[in-house]
């Protein structure tokens, strides 16, 4: 698992690669906090290269979304595919976090 941070016109994009499970979810949380820092205006998590996530990783996504929400920082997800997308939908996360089909749509929405 690896989190890469990129900046696009004031929007922070965190690209997550690999697998997030109970054995590395703490590391996932730490890497996300490092990527987001304290000054991001809006955050997009690009999950196009995320191969697997279980409830341990979903818990981290929810925690991070809540923390950013309290700071009035918008967060959205993009590029979910296959079983990863199903897992987010079954969890009801599509109702609490905006999910976009691709990064372009996510950046356009975040920039508004």
């Amino acid at each position: 698992m690896n989190v890469q941070a990129e900046h696009h016109d004031g929007v922070l994009v965190a690209k997550v690669e690999g697998r997030v499970d109970s054995s590395n979810s703490q590391d996932f949380e730490r890497q996300l906090h490092e990527a987001f820092g304290d000054d991001a205006g809006a955050v997009v998590m690009d999950l196009g290269q995320l191969a697997y996530i279980s409830s341990a990783g979903l818990r981290v996504v929810l925690l991070v979304a809540k923390t950013l929400g309290q700071r009035n920082v918008g967060i959205s997800l993009c590029s979910l595919s296959g079983p990863v997308q199903s897992v987010f939908e079954i969890s009801g996360f599509n109702r609490i976090i905006q999910i976009h089909e691709n990064r372009t749509d996510a950046l356009a929405a975040a920039g508004k």
Binding site: S55, K66, G69, V87, I90, S91, G92, R95, I96
Partner: peptide
Amino acid sequence: EPDTEAVLEDRKIGGLGVHLVRVL
């Protein structure tokens, strides 16, 4: 059972694992 209808502020952390297993 997690409340998958809750809004972000009310959504409890955790309780999701067994729910995912039941559905998948």
